[in-house]
Design a protein around this nucleic acid. Structure first.
Lengths: 327, 327
DNA sequence: GCGTACCCACAACGATTGGTTGTGGGTACG
DNA sequence: CGTACCCACAACCAATCGTTGTGGGTACGC
């Protein structure tokens, strides 16, 4: 069944004339006549009674009309669902329990009615995420490229928000009772961060962090999921891990894990947003405005060398992505 | 947009293989490939990622899928809405305030969920209604043919129920205070029944009734609607009219109109149902069963000569329309 | 490491469809 | 009774959709 024929049927039912319908749809009267005739042949019933003054619906036509409308409307929605610019804002996050997803959820709750698709591309190489953004497959991605030269001209990377690291430890760990810790106090302790894909921006981040503060950050071994990680931490007296302050972790009460903030300096993982340099999704503007409202960690803050600049709030507002039109 | 392509898309998304999809749909793999390619071209996005093991949905494909399903479902419903046998039971009544419509409403209330279309063909000649039934435009019509020879072989007429006449009079009418009346007592009074189309079965009915009981039944003058009729009755001291016992009439309280039953004999207008002799709508069976439960007027009953036979209840049940397969 | 099996895409070709223009029949209206 | 208007039919052309045949690419097994 051709949806163009359905559209013609609906309009013809409203206008009562094939001629007018044809003019509105930009075809000849004969084309409309054939479309309707085809529909009638396909359905096996007569939809219109032809009169000298035009056409009017038969009983079958009357019964068919609301359904035809609903098909046409469904087609409209289907097309809109994938039309770049009018479809739901589609954001790539690393995982649904990450700080990125938490922030997106906050954004969505504070903007009821917003169409938002939170997706996970499940790729380790940030270059693939860049390509997905460039191709318009996602409207933005919370990924970072550590080498500015690797960023093609049609993709921009901007600072989204800082994710301050916290130490997650079990009750038997020597640092378990600390209210806060400095990076220097972590020296010599084994920090286990499984699931860091080699070559990803996270690997680069922890490399630089370990070098800068002389830490033992251990990414070795396969990642069996957060459950295994939390289970191990609860048991161990010498293993700790880093988590983002807003990351969502849930464990049984008897695990008695503690999140210890790190200060002087705060260790900030700079969450960035990759987005198209031209014609970004209109919904992005509201999201960026929301990101501006997130609190910044108190100084002093350490960030890796490749962190995109944190623009002051007033200039952020002055330079919104929809205003950006390079070249 | 072609709905066959949408169907192919939905199935391919479920199966993950064009090959299997093509087999299920009875076309070649290349045809499915072209349908999807056409859809992708029309939408301007890629719906599937082609892999060596088949295909898998892209993000746009995932966003499109539920909408495609809803279009396909809407098309199914649209087709079903006009497919003879599966569409709603469609019954023609003379008017929405007639006893026929009242009975249909009762039926619908006692059979929740039944799909029922009560329509008014708005034709005076019962032959047109017969043609509509024969053509399947309506599944049944509460009309009667008074000449059995005029009934084509593919349309049957059966007795539906009797509608006993009542006299409707205003408070100043000499018969206003009667509790009941016999036809003999009506003699000499002017009975005004506007809106009876010449040639219709109602005209034949009132002709025969007037002759049989020597009554003055006056159908002259245009019919300006029930409001005018009721208004006239309320004022007049010498005009009365006939109404069916189950007809729905509403008038302001101060009109003070009275419905007076007529007995010895009861004057029964025999409401008939025209229905196809072959392949009647399956929903008709339940309707006929419901008609069987309606009470019959107490004897003695006068009916016109052309009234179809009133079959006893037990035989009515034995001979249902779905059992009838002439030739 | 290479053949095999499997999958999808491309090419070519015939049948069908959907569009056009031109024409005709039928009904209301003056 | 002529005119205006509307829809249907015929003929023709282009585009589409189906087919068969073929090719490229990837996973899997020997």
């Amino acid at each position: 069944m051709d949806t163009e024929a359905l559209r013609s049927f609906v309009r013809a039912a409203e206008l009562g004339r094939f001629q007018r319908t044809a003019e509105e749809l930009g075809v000849t009267q004969q084309a409309v006549s054939k479309r309707i005739a085809g529909l009638e042949r396909e359905l096996g019933v007569r939809l219109f009674a032809r009169t000298a003054r035009g056409v009017e619906l038969t009983l079958d036509g009357q019964a068919f009309l609301p359904h035809a409308r609903s098909v046409v409307a469904a087609v409209e929605r289907a097309v809109a669902a994938v039309r770049p610019g009018s479809r739901a804002l589609r954001i790539d996050v690393l995982g649904l329990r990450s700080a990125q997803a938490v922030v997106l959820h906050e954004y969505w709750r504070s903007h009821p009615g917003t169409d938002l698709d939170v997706v996970t591309l499940r790729v380790t190489d940030p270059g693939v995420a860049v390509a997905a953004v460039a191709a318009g497959e996602v409207d933005a991605s919370f990924r970072s490229v550590t080498d500015p030269g690797a960023l093609p001209p049609d993709v921009r990377m901007i600072h989204a928000f800082d994710s301050p690291l916290e130490l997650l430890v079990g009750p038997r760990h020597p640092l378990a009772s600390a209210r806060r810790l400095t990076p220097a106090q972590l020296r010599g302790h084994r920090i286990w961060v499984p699931g860091i894909a080699p070559g990803s921006e996270w690997a680069v981040f922890y490399d630089e962090l370990a070098t800068e503060f002389d830490l033992r950050v251990d990414a070795a071994g396969p990642h069996f999921g957060d459950e295994v990680l939390l289970d191990t931490l609860a048991e161990s007296a010498d293993v700790a891990t880093f988590v983002g302050a807003r990351d969502r972790y849930i464990w049984p009460t008897h695990y008695d894990l503690r999140r210890v903030p790190i200060t002087d300096p705060v260790l900030a993982y700079p969450l960035s947003l990759l987005l198209p340099a031209t014609n970004p999704h209109p919904g992005l503007r509201a999201l960026l405005t929301h990101l501006d409202t997130l609190p910044e960690p108190p100084e002093p803050v350490w960030r890796p060398s490749w962190a995109p600049p944190v623009r002051p709030k007033e200039s952020r507002h002055a330079r919104r992505p929809t205003d950006a039109h390079p070249q």
